[in-house]
């Protein structure tokens, strides 16, 4: 395959649009789930919360403003074709420039501090982005991007479960994590689960799972059934929309898996609010 040149500016423009779009326009998967939940929610307060969320997301779309003030930490999953060369810049700089332009020109909130513990001074342009890159064969760049809010991120957890705990151990850790989160992560939530890999791979899978549309399911029927079972169990907990009581605590459970070690069965749960924002593009 021929080597293909891509201008850094093309990467920047693509990334900029992904971040403005994901913050203004909620996905059809989420909107449909919210509208269905509004019909099935038993709590009158919960129903009213859902209708206000739907109205909110429509205002954001029509006025092209962020649907949530927490426009998130910029996270990208990149499949970078090994036949691609970036002209006039580097890939990472081009991505961060796209994030910078989206957040500065798109009226998005700048939420990143440079030092986590001591200074905590805002970088003022929402960079640096979190970039997960996988080198693949080919001459394209595929980008899946989203702004991840931290109200829900803070409710996430990881556990190095061992094999003897089996699927019951996996389920109880996921359910415990959702129960501990309670009303805090802006329910109804999307629960991203990563199982397998090692410590950091399962966390990355969990994040990637929150970036998968909730009208899809795991391609392995066993995990697809687990997604459905967990969703039903979570919705029996009673937290409901905004945590004010009801039968709509989650609108989706997405599981992603990877091969793991004979001694391990790590599980990560990345919780996302109802503003589960992600968009993708191919360059």
């Amino acid at each position: 395959m021929e080597i293909r040149s891509i201008q850094a500016e093309t990467v920047t423009k693509t990334v900029k649009k992904l971040f403005t779009d994901c913050n203004y326009f909620i996905g059809d998967d989420i909107m449909n789930a919210l509208k269905n939940a509004e019909k099935t929610e038993k709590s009158p307060v919960g129903k009213s919360v859902l209708s206000q969320i739907i109205e909110n997301d429509e205002i954001a779309k029509n006025e092209m403003i962020p649907l949530c003030q927490d426009t998130g930490m910029a996270v990208l999953f990149v499949e970078y074709g090994d036949r691609v060369v970036i002209e006039d810049g580097s890939f990472e700089q081009a991505v961060n420039q796209g994030v910078r332009e989206a957040y500065e020109e798109g009226y998005l909130r700048k939420s990143i501090v440079a030092d986590p513990v001591f200074d905590r001074i805002n970088t003022k342009d929402n960079t640096p982005a979190v970039i997960h890159t996988r080198i693949v064969s080919g001459n394209q760049i595929k980008i899946l991007a989203g702004g991840k809010g931290f109200g829900s991120e803070n409710m996430s957890a990881i556990k190095m479960i061992t094999p003897s705990y089996g699927v019951e151990g996996v389920k109880s850790f996921i359910l415990d994590t959702v129960r501990k989160a309670g009303p805090n992560p802006c329910p109804p939530i999307v629960v991203g689960v990563g199982i397998g890999g090692d410590f950091e791979v399962c966390a990355e899978l969990a994040k990637k799972a929150t970036f998968r549309s909730i009208d899809t399911q795991n391609s392995d029927a066993r995990y697809a059934a687990l997604e459905q079972e967990l969703l039903e169990k979570i919705n029996k907990m009673g937290f409901g929309p905004a945590g004010l009581g009801g039968n709509t605590t989650a609108i989706g459970v997405n599981i992603e898996t990877a091969p793991t070690h004979i001694a391990g069965m790590p599980v990560a749960v990345n919780i996302c609010c109802h503003a589960a924002r992600h968009k993708s593009a191919v360059i």
């Binding site: 919360v49 206000q52 969320i53 109205e55 909110n56 997301d57 205002i59 954001a60 006025e63 403003i65 962020p66 649907l67 949530c68 003030q69 909130r109 700048k110 939420s111 805002n122 003022k124 109200g151 802006c186 905004a242 609010c273 109802h274 503003a275």
Partner: peptide
Amino acid sequence: AIGGAAALIAKSIKIEELICYEDLGT
């Protein structure tokens, strides 16, 4: 207030004035 209903809630905020700590941005 309803988490994630930021665009809707903003409709009820008519005036915004800075009081202090401008260096903290948002």
